[in-house]
């Protein structure tokens, strides 16, 4: 897509010598009357052609949008939810024509698969899991990991989908006797899985055998950290965490992300990078997403900020647009675009 609309650039962070920029590629509005809660990009096959489509989720409806030639988006499928509201979209890599969603009020109560019947293309939804679900993540090789329950009653399950999203296989992972907060796949090591726990540990599993390999205690300065990504390099694990509960400090302001390096053999860890806001920006971490080495966060101020983890600093800031605060930010799974959403259903697609 070429840029035809407003260009919104950067904002040089502190001592940035190479400011990044965000270029608006296209935008559309989901006219649903309920609150917009999530956005994602998926591959969807129609008439034998796989297309990069956008999924939007409001509290009571999930919609699939396909691209038209004119930088417009057309809504082609909707799934309605009348009993339990939608909390988040759970993309499952390597599966076509299937989306998972988590439903609940404050906590996840159900995970459902959304798909279309092959004959008449009518929308279907299938209940995959129900209960007190603490964390869920779609993994490569068509897998979905979820943890149900807390402490000693916790069950951690891996579900594997068939290529067409159909029949599935289930496997259990050894629970760590600590409540799991988030999961993260390890780039460069497909059979490893990380989890963060409520007592500030990072746990490492072997996905093939289900074994719990190690618990690593991380710095107690930030509680309830979320693990977004992990990379395996040269015998070490590099882990990107965010800190929604962190308090502002005079020295650093509000920490958004940190990059930790962990030696899995010794369970020792060292912080190598702390991502804070550039001067003049205020707010705490609300939600965020990390793809490769680029991290994006929505701040409580309604602004989106982006950090390059290799350069080690903030490279772009996107202030609220049309007087509407940002509430969602996701990297597209189908290209290098950034999806930014507002509560009223406006979705903006930027090239970074």
């Amino acid at each position: 897509y070429s840029t035809e609309q407003t260009e919104i650039t950067d904002l040089p962070a502190c001592d940035s010598w190479n400011p990044g920029s965000l270029h608006l590629v296209s935008k559309f509005k989901n006219p649903s009357s309920s609150c917009s809660v999530d956005v994602s990009a998926v591959w969807w096959e129609r008439a034998g052609v796989k297309e990069p489509c956008i999924i939007t989720a409001c509290e009571d409806v999930v919609s699939l949008w396909k691209p038209l030639d004119t930088l417009q988006w057309e809504k082609v499928h909707t799934w309605q939810f009348t009993e339990v509201p939608v909390l988040q979209i759970v993309p499952v890599p390597d599966v076509y024509n299937l989306i998972c969603v988590a439903l609940g009020n404050l906590e996840i109560r159900e995970i459902r698969a959304l798909l279309c019947s092959s004959g008449d293309e009518s929308e279907k939804q299938v209940l995959l899991k129900s209960g007190n679900i603490k964390a869920v993540l779609g993994l490569t090789k068509r897998r979905l990991v979820s943890s149900i329950g807390t402490f000693c009653n916790q069950q951690i399950q891996i579900m594997t989908f068939a290529e067409d999203g159909g029949s599935k296989d289930e496997q259990l992972l050894m629970p760590p006797d600590e409540t799991i907060l988030t999961f993260a796949e390890v780039q460069g090591m497909q059979d490893a899985l990380l989890g963060t726990t409520t007592v500030n540990n990072i746990v490492i599993w072997n996905l093939k055998t289900g074994q719990l390999l190690k618990k690593v205690h991380i710095d107690d300065s930030y509680q309830a950290s979320i693990c977004h990504r992990a990379y395996s390099e040269m015998g070490l694990l590099f882990v990107v965490l965010s800190h929604p509960c962190a308090k502002e400090s005079q020295a650093f302001g509000s920490p958004m992300f940190q990059l930790l390096v962990i030696n899995p053999k010794t369970a020792q860890s060292v912080r190598v990078l702390l991502c804070c806001l550039p001067q003049g920006q205020a707010g705490r971490f609300l939600e965020g997403d990390v793809k490769d080495h680029i991290a994006a966060a929505v701040l409580t101020s309604g602004t989106i900020a982006i950090w390059d983890l290799l350069l080690g600093h903030c490279t772009a800031v996107l202030p609220p647009v049309s007087d509407q605060n940002w509430s969602l930010v996701k990297w597209s799974g189908t290209d290098s675009h950034l999806l930014a959403g507002q509560k009223d259903g406006n979705i903006f697609i930027y090239r970074y």
């Binding site: 090591m189 059979d191 490893a192 055998t209 074994q211 070490l236 390096v261 053999k265 020792q268 060292v270």
Partner: peptide
Amino acid sequence: CSTADLGPISLNWFEELSSEAPP
């Protein structure tokens, strides 16, 4: 920070931990 703080590093940590951990 220094990688010395992390202790001895093994390139085969995943296989080694898998052989040591309970099944």
